[in-house]
Design a protein around this nucleic acid. Structure first.
Lengths: 207, 207
DNA sequence: GCTGTGTTACCGACCGGTCGGTAGCCTGAC
DNA sequence: GTCAGGCTACCGACCGGTCGGTAACACAGC
């Protein structure tokens, strides 16, 4: 393993397996994907695959952990230091939608879809990392409220509404569809931060 | 089979099987639930179960169709005739959240979660019924825009944002948690129809 | 009121195939 | 000569699904 033409071993081979497995599991679901299929897709036999991983559930856990790393790197880390809380939330929404639509990260989709598949400690670990993100949104929102920039609504409900809008996208988005990633970002930013109801029009009032 | 103590046969037995199967599939996922488990839960052998159904996928299809009936009966039918479009959307949101939180209908949760499990014609049929609901929301929103009650945003994005907020709830709601169904309904209505950002505060403006 | 016929609901046994996972051997690079 | 990385061969359990058979009951004919 020299300086230049180093082997694709170590972590690289392992990560390639994770990515291949993630692609399959994202397409067919965790229970719907067999180890045989994953091994074949990795150009390995099943026993060969088991040389690199412990078992199926640990493989899913590794994929999800990698997905959380990816997510935190591409969303959380990039927006965490934005000073203005409203702008922080806007940037957060933009990057989050990008991550879900640009099909680069199957791992993140798996985290979203297989929300109740893991068990025991692995489940608790992933759930806790998710919860940190929810807290981050809640806190940023609270900050904006304190500055008088947003109405004092229930923080958790605001956070989950934000996330629902943004993450539900994985269920209906089509890369070649009429609505591009950019249009969705612009539309949702406008809706969430610009409001829906016309300011002047009170309920039932005629125009 | 007298007038009173009639047999629980006919459609009743079949619907009981659907409900039992729905409960299991909702808990463990479609691929994660075996026909043996479903049969046992129905107090049947596997062969006995297959007397009532054709195969596993058709069982899922029947559950989803029943779920769509249930949904259309408890949401669409109840709000369709409300004259005011804004009030129609508000009532729609309320009833939709109720349906997802009041754990009565596992079938609806299955429709939400197993969005890519069915194949072929069955998939197309369910997808079309879903699409009708999206169109209903789009149209109601467009009606509100025409009346000058709402801002003219992209209708599809508004519809999917609405649905995302509301339906994502199935992934995080806990019946015994801090946030009751009522609180979620009130909070989301306030957020979606009341707006998030304080009307007076322009971007970056100090208070 | 008994009997023959048909039907419904269900069972035990079993099908070929696949599941996740493992034991043990080989091979090439350090 | 060790050892990671891979293979062949195989395990027991379980998968979705089907087979022939049967208990229970409805109903018509006589």
């Amino acid at each position: 393993m020299g300086l230049v033409g180093r082997k694709p071993d170590d972590g690289e081979r392992y990560r390639a397996i994770l990515e291949t497995a993630a692609r399959l599991i994202c397409e067919r679901g965790y229970e719907g994907t067999s180890m045989q299929e994953i091994a074949s897709a990795c150009r390995l036999t099943k026993a060969g695959l088991y040389h690199h991983i412990q078992n199926k559930e640990q493989l899913l856990f590794a994929i999800m952990s990698y997905g959380m790393d990816l997510f935190e790197g591409q969303v959380l880390a990039k927006v965490r230091d934005i000073e203005d809380p409203v702008e922080r939330l806007r940037s957060c929404m933009r990057r989050n939608i990008e991550l879900v639509t640009h099909g680069a990260s199957k791992e993140v989709i798996i985290i979203l879809h297989e929300h109740a598949t893991l068990t025991g400690e692995a489940r608790e670990y992933i759930d806790q990392r998710k919860k940190q993100y929810v807290r981050f949104i809640e806190n940023t929102f609270a900050e904006a409220v304190k500055l008088g920039r947003m109405r004092p609504l229930e923080p958790t409900i605001v956070a989950f509404s934000f996330l629902g809008m943004v993450l539900w996208v994985y269920k209906w988005f089509k890369p070649d569809g009429r609505l591009s990633s950019e249009k969705i970002i612009d539309g949702m930013l406008d809706l969430f931060f610009g409001g829906l109801v016309v300011p002047g029009a009170a309920t039932g009032e005629k125009v």
